[in-house]
Simulated assay, not measured.
Amino acid sequence: MSPLFRDAGEVRERLDAVGHLVDEGTATAFFLATALRRPLLVEGEPGVGKTSSATSLAMALDTPLIRLQCYEGLTATEALYEWNYQRQLLSIRLTEARREQLSDADLFTEEYLQDRPLLRAVRHRGPVPPVLLIDEIDRADDEFEALLLEFLGENSITVPELGTFTAAVPPVVVLTSNRSRELHDALRRRCLYHWIDFPSPERATEILRRAVPGAGEPLIASAAAFIGRVRTLDLDKAPGMAETIDWVSALTALQVTRLVRADVVRTLSTIAKSPDDHVTITEALDDLGCPGQAGHDEPHREEATKQ
C-alpha cells in the first residue's frame, strides 16, 4: 500500500494548501499516523484546532470525513450500526398479506443494515481511506471506550447476524479529547499521541492574515499578542483561534486599525465566554498592556473618505 504522504513536510504543504496551518509536531504526528496506520489521539485545550486539523486532513487527502461526535450516553447503535426496523416491519406485513412466511434470517440481512460512523468507515471502498474523526472521546462513557477497542485494534466490527466486517484499507482514525476525564490505558496504548498547544504569536498572526484578509497588519499583530497574554489569566475558557478570528473580524467590521482599550472593552464578548471571564479580562487590561484609558481614548479607525 503506497503511503499517503512522503514525509511530514508534505503534510504541512497539503494542509497549507487547504488553508490550515500546522506546526512541525502536528504535521509529524499526522504523517506517522498515516504511515504506520495507527489511530492518533489528539489532546489539547478547547479551541486549539484539534477538530479542524482532522477535517483539514480529509480535505488534503481528498477523501470523505466520517465524524462521530461523542457525548454522555452514546450507544453502540448510534456508533456502529442499527437495523432498519421500519423496513423490517413493512416486509413482515407484506409477507403476511401474501400468506407467506418470513424467517429471522430473511430479516437480518445487509438490505436492512444501516451503517453508522464506525461501520461506514470499515465498509468504505476506494483508493484512499476515509478520515474517521471520533470527536471529544472524553465526553463518552467508559463503556463506549471498551466498545472501541476491537475496532481500533483490528479495524473490524462484528455484526452477530452477519459476521465480521474488516476494513479493506484501514481508515485514518483521529480521536480528540479535551481531557475532561482520564481515558483508559487500554485505549491510549492502541493510539499514537499528540498534544496540540495554542499557536505561537507568529503562527497565530499568519492564521489571522488568512482568516481576516481585511484586517490591517498592526491590528493583527497586536491582537495576536494580546490574546497570548489573555491566555495566561485564570479563565474558565481561554480564547482559542476561533474566538480570536471572531474578535479580529468584529474589530475590522468596526473599522478599527489599532488596538486600544475602548475597542477591546466593547468587543470583549467575542473572546470572553462567561461573566467571570469578562470581569477577569477587564480588570487585567492594565497588566495585559492594553493602551489607553477606558472611555477616554478615541478608537483609531480608517476614515471613510480616506483614499
Rank of each mutant, 00 (worst) to 15 (best):
V11I: 11
N84W: 10
L285M: 15
E206Y: 07
T270F: 15
E161R: 15
I92S: 14
L148P: 01
L4Q: 04
Q101W: 02
T267P: 11
L32F: 12
T26W: 00
D246A: 14
E302I: 11
T166C: 06
T244P: 00
R189W: 03
A294Q: 03
A242H: 07
F144H: 06
R210W: 06
S156L: 04
T305I: 13
K273V: 04
V256Q: 04
L187P: 06
Y81Q: 03
H278G: 04
I134L: 13
D23Q: 01
D276M: 13
L118D: 12
L80E: 07
F144G: 02
L162G: 08
A97E: 14
V169K: 08
F198R: 03
T305D: 15
N178E: 03
P299D: 09
P218Q: 11
P127N: 04
V48T: 15
V265G: 03
A79F: 08
Y193V: 01
F226A: 13
D276G: 11
D23H: 09
F144T: 04
G292Q: 02
P171K: 07
G44N: 06
R125S: 09
E72H: 13
F151P: 00
R98N: 12
L192K: 05
L183M: 10
I271P: 03
R93E: 14
G163I: 10
R12A: 14
F226D: 09
L268H: 09
A58V: 04
E43D: 04
V131E: 06
R38K: 15
T280V: 09
R261T: 14
E298T: 11
A211Q: 12
P199N: 05
